[in-house]
Design a protein around this nucleic acid. Structure first.
Lengths: 217, 217, 217, 217
DNA sequence: CATGAATGAGAATTCATTCAT
DNA sequence: AATGAATGAATTCTCATTCAT
C-alpha cells in the first residue's frame, strides 16, 4: 500500500474529513464517535489516528476545511454595487456554503456557543476572515452614507453575522419552515439595514434604491 | 408527618435543582456529572433518582425553573408606553435574569443549537412564553404603526429574541468586552427597530416618538 | 447493597487487593489487566474504580499491604542475641513473608529496578522500614565490635538487603534450585558477614560465637 | 552488487540495533516503541521487520550485542595477580561497560528480574560468559587458598555478580549518590571477599595483600 | 529491500442507572 | 426515602504487525 501515496493519502484524508464532518454535525463534538467515523468512512478504527492526532485535532481540521471553502466563496463575491447588494450577495454566498454542509455549520455555531477553552479560539480564528470582508463592505457603506455612523463598523459587522446566524438557527430550529434558505439573505439584510420599526414616511420604504440615487439625499 | 415530609421533599428537590443548575452551567448537559450534583447538594447519588427519572429529565426541570423565573420577571414588566420602551424593558428584564445565572443560560443557548431530538423540543417549549410576550408587544406596535407590517409579528418576535441572543453570544465571546451587559437592551432594540442602515432624511430619524404621533402617517 | 457497608466493603477491598496482588505478580505492573482483576475477584470492571482511583493506586495499595505484613513480621523478630543471629532471624522472617507472596515480591523487585518516576518513590517509601530495622541491628553490632566500622551502617544495611535480594533473584531465576528458600537466610548472612574470602588463620574464624563470649574483647 | 548489499545490510542492522538499544534503555521492553526505533534510525517502520521477526527478537539481539561487547571487555582483563586484583579488574571492566550504556543495562537487570518465560532464558544465556570468567578466577583462588572452599565456585561466582548488581541498583536508585561508579569495584570485592563482619584480629585485615604472601596459609 | 498505510485487538477509565438494604 | 455498591456499556487512543506496492 505504500507507494501510491500522496494522492491516495489525500483522498483518504478527504474522505475521513467528510465523514467526520457529518459525524460532528450529527452528534456534536462530544457526541461524535471516532470509531464510527473511521468505520463509516470504510476504514478500521485505528486508521483515523494515522491521519489525525486526536479527536479534537480532527475537529479542528474539519472546521478549517469548511471555513476555507467558505472564505473562497466569500472572496469571489463581487464587491461592487450598493452596500445592500453586496451584503445580500455575501449572505447568499453564505447560504450557499452552508447549504452544502448544513449539519456541519450547525456544529460550528453550537461549538462557538460553548465557549470552551479548547474550541472557542479555534472557531473564532476561522471565522475572522468572514467578518473582515463584511466590515470592509460596511466601511464602504459608511463612506457612501448608506451605513449609520454612530456605531463602529466592526460592531456592525459582527451584528450582521449574528443576524445571519440567528436566522439560520431559526431556519434549522423550525425544520426549515421559516425562514426558508432562499429568504434568509434578503430578510437578514433588510432586518440588519432597516430594522423592524415602521419606516417613517418615505417613498419606497424598503427595497432597492439604486446606489447612485442613494448617494444624493 | 405527612405535611412535613411533603415540605421536606420539596426542599430537597429545590436543592437538587439548584445544584444541578450550577453543574449544568459549569459543564454542559453531557459534561454534567450526576454524582457530583448529588454529593454537592449533600445527598447520595441514588437520591437524585428518587426525584428525577433521568439526567435529561433533571435538565428539563432545571430549565423549566429557570424559564419560569424569567417569565415571571417578564410578566412584571409594564406593557405600557411606546413599543421601543416596552422592548427595552423586556430586554432589560432578560439581561437581569440571565445575569443571575449566566453560565446556565449559556448552556441553554448551546443546547438549543444542538437541535438534538431529545433536547430541542424541551427547550423550545420552555422558551415559548417569552416569545409570546414579545409578540404581544409587537402586535400592539403594529396596531400603533410602530412596527412594520410586511412581516408577521411571530417572525419579528423570533427575530428580536434572536438579536438578543446574538448580542449575548458576542458579549460572552468577547469576555464581556463588547457589548457590555448594560448596552445590550438599548443596542438590541435599536438594531431591531432601526437596523444598521443610515436613516433617510426625516425630522427625528431615531428615538422616541410618542405613540400618538406615530399613529398618523 | 448500601447499608451493609463497612465490613462488607472492607472484605471486597481485601478480595480485590488479593486478586490484584496475584495479577501484578503474574504480569507485572504494566502487564496487569484491571478488568481481569475485577472479574477474577468476582466483580464487574467498573467496581474496581469504586475502590481505587487508578491502576497505579491499586498497585501502591497492594504494595502497602504486603509491606505492612512484612514489617509486622520483622518487628516481631527478637532483637536479642548476636548480630548474626538477629540477621538470620530477620532474613528468615523475610523469607517467610516473601514465600507467601513470592510472585508479588518478584514484581516489587522488578518495578524497583525500573526507576520510573511514578513507581520508584512509592516502592522506596515502603521498603524504608525494613532497612531501618536492619540498620538498627547493625548499629548494635558496631557497638559490640561485631560489625566493621569503616563503613556507615546505613550503607551496610542496604548491602545486606541487597544481598538478600540477589539470593532471591538467583533462587527465582534458578527455578528454586539454588539457593533453596531454606538456605537463603544462612547463606545471606554468611556472605554478608564473612564474604567469600578464605578466612585468615584464626581459631574459629566463622560461625556461632555466643553473645556473652563476644562481649568481652 | 552482492557484497555492497551485504555490507549495507549489516550496517542497517547495526544502526537499528543501536537505536533500539537506546529505546529499550529509555522505555523498557514493553514501553519501547517499534515505530520510534525505526524512525529514529532513519528507516520506515516496516524495515525493522525485514531484519527482525518481532520486537522481542529485536530485544534479544540488542541484548546479545551488548553482552558480546561486555564479554570482549571482560576477556581482555588480565587474569594474573591475586584473586582480589582480578575481581577488582573484572568489576572495573564491568563498570566501564555499563557506564557506556547505563540505561541499557538497567533494562537488562530489570528484565532479568521479570522472570518472564520469553526473556529470562535469553538473558541468562547471555550472562553465562561473565559468570564463567568469574568462576574461573575463583577456581584459581580456591587453588591458591584465597577463596573459601565450603561453597561451590559456581555459587560464589553468581554471588559475586549478584553483589555487583546490587551495588549498581543502589547506585542507580540513589541517583548516583552512593555508591559512586568509582567506588563500586572496590566495595563489591571487599564485601564479597570479607563481608561486613568485623575481622578477627589479624595483621592486615583488609586490603591488598601480595599474592605471594597470601599463598602461604 | 524499503515503505508506510491499514489493521484491529486491547486497555484504562468514566458514569448513568439500578436495586438491595 | 435515602443510600451507595455494583454494574457494564461506551469511548478514546496505542501500537505491534502485516502486506501491497
Amino acid at each position: 500500500m505504500a507507494r501510491i501515496t500522496k494522492e491516495t493519502k489525500a483522498e483518504v484524508r478527504k474522505r475521513l474529513l467528510e465523514t467526520a464532518a457529518r459525524e460532528f454535525a450529527d452528534h456534536g463534538l462530544d457526541g461524535a464517535n471516532v470509531d464510527r467515523i473511521a468505520v463509516t468512512a470504510g476504514y478500521a478504527k485505528g486508521t483515523i489516528y494515522n491521519y489525525f492526532k486526536s479527536k479534537l485535532e480532527l475537529f479542528a481540521e474539519v472546521l478549517a476545511v469548511g471555513c476555507d471553502q467558505a472564505v473562497e466563496r466569500y472572496s469571489s463575491v463581487p464587491h461592487t454595487g450598493s452596500v445592500r447588494d453586496c451584503l445580500v450577495a455575501l449572505a447568499a454566498a453564505d447560504v450557499a456554503v452552508i447549504q452544502e454542509e448544513e449539519r456541519f455549520f450547525q456544529v460550528v455555531v453550537r461549538e462557538a456557543m460553548s465557549f470552551r477553552a479548547e474550541t472557542y479560539p479555534v472557531i473564532v480564528e476561522q471565522l475572522t476572515p468572514y467578518v473582515a470582508i463584511v466590515e470592509e463592505v460596511l466601511a464602504r457603506g459608511v463612506a457612501d452614507g448608506e451605513i449609520r455612523t454612530d456605531r463602529p463598523t466592526g460592531q456592525l459587522a459582527l451584528a450582521f453575522v449574528g443576524v445571519l446566524a440567528v436566522l439560520y438557527v431559526q431556519h434549522w430550529g423550525s425544520g426549515g419552515a421559516w425562514p426558508t434558505q432562499e429568504e434568509i439573505p434578503e430578510f437578514a439584510v433588510t432586518l440588519f439595514l432597516e430594522g423592524a420599526g415602521a419606516r417613517p414616511a418615505s417613498p419606497k420604504p424598503r427595497r432597492r434604491r439604486t446606489p447612485t440615487k442613494e448617494k444624493s439625499p
